[in-house]
Design a binder for these strands. Structure first.
Length: 113
DNA sequence: GCAATGACGCTCT
DNA sequence: CAGAGCGCCATTG
């Protein structure tokens, strides 16, 4: 069963995250035209199958940290994948979003900075 | 349909 | 900068 349309948009946005950068759940939600549904973004990530091509590991929370998950240790995997792409972690395991944050660019004629 | 859960974010202190 | 509280609402049982 295909994922919900909303999920498809979320995945589409996540796929646009460039390598070596990260986006926040809220950011992805807004880019997916689902403002305020940051939680659902996380839920969509949780619903991803193993072996997916969606770079879910490039999605972190607003604090620039890897969110705690139900399964301990899995967060280390995400961190590993990010470091492998060149994303650096600061003290406290926080990623400086000012440096590695994805500067989102909306398509479809939406003006961007 | 109802109640509980959750890979979150913003505001206030 | 760090911690606590409230709001958000789709998904799940």
């Amino acid at each position: 069963m295909p994922a919900s349309p909303a999920y498809q948009r979320i995945y589409a946005v996540v796929r646009r995250i460039p390598r070596g950068r990260v986006a926040t759940y809220g950011q992805v939600a807004r880019l997916a035209r689902l403002p305020g549904r940051a939680r659902q973004v996380g839920y969509a990530m949780h619903a991803l199958p193993s072996g997916t091509r969606v770079p879910w590991h490039r999605v972190v929370n607003a604090e620039g940290r890897v969110s705690r998950r139900r399964v301990p240790g899995a967060e280390l995997t995400q961190r590993m994948l990010l470091e492998r792409e060149g994303v650096g972690f600061g003290p406290g395991g926080k990623i400086p979003l000012t440096r590695y944050g994805w500067k989102a660019t909306l398509r479809r004629g939406v003006a961007n900075g």
